[in-house]
Simulated scan of single mutants.
Amino acid sequence: MNTINVLVTGAGSLYGVAVIQSLLKSKLHIKIVAIDIHSHALGLHLACRSYLVPPVKEEEFYLEKLLEILKKENIHAVFIASSQELSFYSRYKTLIEAETNAKVFTNSARVLSICSDKWNTVNFLKDHHFPYPKTIRYPEDKEQIDSFLKVVDFPLIVKPRRGKGSEDVHVAQNLMALHQLLSEKKDIILQQYLPDDQGEFTVGICSGMDGTVLSSIALKRHLQDGITMRATSGDFKDITEYCKQVAVALKPYGPCNFQLRFWQEKAYIFEINPRFSSTTGMRTLLGVNEPEILLRSELLQEEIPELNIIKSSVIRQYADYLVPTEKISQLEQESISTKSKTKE
């Protein structure tokens, strides 16, 4: 395979840009095709070819457009960089792969169910005898709040069962604050607060179709508004080995991220994201290029050697890109033209 044609979805997301930049740094000969719903999505202007697509909630139209692009560009691999699209690709993986030459790097419905619902995540960890933060649901377990507080006390984490990043995550310092946060809420969990005196870690585990761990890297991360703005690699072997064990039990396919903190000298995972991470680009700089690793292992059937991870820090700083307005307008016109043909 002289050239690998790769489609990156959600090209305007933080994940999408990180995946594209990692592919651009790869030693493989790759043609990057990017898709997004917005013409000003940065990833569209970093790729070799770009297309506008409808929102994934317009499922039938999205699938039709996707298959058209996959066939036209002879795509070999699909990387999903939009959280909203994960379930779509999980449902249509078999169909897409049967109708095209593309391998879709997505997870099973089982893995998505465990990771997308934080209550399910806690129960997965519990059932497999891994440390887990004590957790109850609201309003289902509201009768248990008093007894729960006697065990965990304040501060307390209050967050949605389903959500992304630090969105709508709060720390309740007392009973009054807790009642205010729970007012007229549902699908909430109350969770033991894990102190950050030893820092917070993000661990990337990349797995093949057969569950084999292809790569692993642990970073101590420093957050600002829920986004990793600085990350440091170091001698975190115990952390990566622990997360490898969890990954073997979970059996994700492709990239998977584990967020954890320490309590009483034990690592407690509090969130699992079965997708590319906002630190994908940071990992690439440190020697772990996850998109390239997946292509080499799953597409080219190459053995992945032990990786030499650079011991260093990565600082995130936003950059400005100059994009010709004509290119944005061209993408919009092509999209309008395609919609008109579809209606005809």
Rank of each mutant, 00 (worst) to 15 (best):
I4W: 03
T9Q: 08
V19E: 10
Q21L: 15
S22N: 10
L28D: 08
I30F: 03
I32Y: 10
I35Y: 02
H38N: 14
H40F: 13
L42H: 06
G43P: 08
H45D: 09
H45Q: 10
H45Y: 11
C48S: 15
P55G: 07
V56I: 15
K57Q: 11
E58V: 00
E59S: 14
F61T: 13
L63V: 04
L66S: 10
I69R: 07
E73S: 04
H76D: 15
H76N: 15
H76M: 00
V78R: 02
I80P: 03
A81M: 03
L86R: 01
F88C: 05
S90Q: 05
Y92M: 04
T100H: 09
N101S: 14
N101R: 12
A102C: 12
K103T: 14
A109T: 03
V111M: 07
I114V: 15
C115H: 01
S116C: 03
D117V: 05
T121W: 02
H128P: 00
H129E: 13
P131K: 06
P131D: 08
Y132Q: 09
E140I: 10
D141F: 08
K142A: 08
P155R: 11
I157K: 02
G163Q: 07
K164I: 14
V169F: 05
H170Q: 13
H179F: 04
Q180E: 14
Q180H: 13
S183T: 07
S183P: 00
I189H: 04
Q191E: 12
Y193R: 04
D196H: 11
F201M: 06
T202W: 02
V203P: 05
S207I: 01
S215F: 09
S215M: 07
I217K: 08
A218L: 08
L219H: 07
K220V: 02
L223V: 06
L223A: 04
D225P: 00
R230E: 15
F236L: 11
K237Q: 13
D238W: 03
T240D: 09
T240G: 04
E241D: 14
Y242R: 06
Y242Q: 11
K244T: 12
Q245I: 00
A247S: 15
A247N: 07
V248F: 03
V248N: 07
G254V: 06
G254F: 04
P255R: 01
C256E: 07
Q259Y: 11
N273L: 09
F276N: 05
T279W: 08
T279A: 07
T284E: 14
L285I: 05
P291R: 10
I293Y: 03
L294M: 15
L295M: 07
L295H: 02
L300C: 06
I304P: 10
P305M: 11
K311R: 13
S312P: 00
S312W: 04
S313P: 01
D320A: 10
D320Y: 09
L322F: 12
L322A: 11
P324Q: 09
T325G: 04
S337K: 13
S340G: 00
K341P: 00
K341T: 10
T342A: 13
